[in-house]
Simulated assay, not measured.
Amino acid sequence: MRAILHVCTTCRGMVPAEDPDAPRPGAVLHQALTDAPPEGVEIRPVECLSACSQGCAVSLSGAGKWSYVYGRLTPEDAADIATGAAAYAASSDGIVPWRERPTIFRKQSLARIPPQE
Rank of each mutant, 00 (worst) to 15 (best):
I4N: 10
C8K: 00
C8T: 07
T10E: 11
R12N: 13
M14N: 09
P16E: 12
P16S: 01
A17F: 00
E18Y: 00
E18M: 08
D19K: 02
P20R: 06
A22N: 08
A22K: 11
P23L: 11
G26C: 14
L29N: 04
H30R: 05
A36N: 11
P37E: 09
P37M: 09
P38K: 09
G40M: 11
E42C: 02
I43F: 11
P45R: 13
E47A: 05
C48P: 11
L49C: 00
S50D: 11
A51F: 02
C52M: 11
C52E: 00
C56N: 14
A57L: 08
A57C: 15
A57V: 15
G62D: 13
K65C: 15
Y68K: 07
Y68S: 08
L73W: 02
L73P: 07
E76H: 04
E76G: 14
A79Q: 14
I81G: 06
G84R: 07
A85C: 13
A85L: 01
A90K: 13
A90C: 05
S91L: 11
I95C: 11
E100S: 12
E100M: 06
E100I: 05
P102F: 06
T103Q: 09
I104N: 01
R106V: 09
K107Q: 13
A111L: 10
R112D: 09
P114S: 05
P114M: 04
P115A: 14
P115Q: 12
E117I: 04
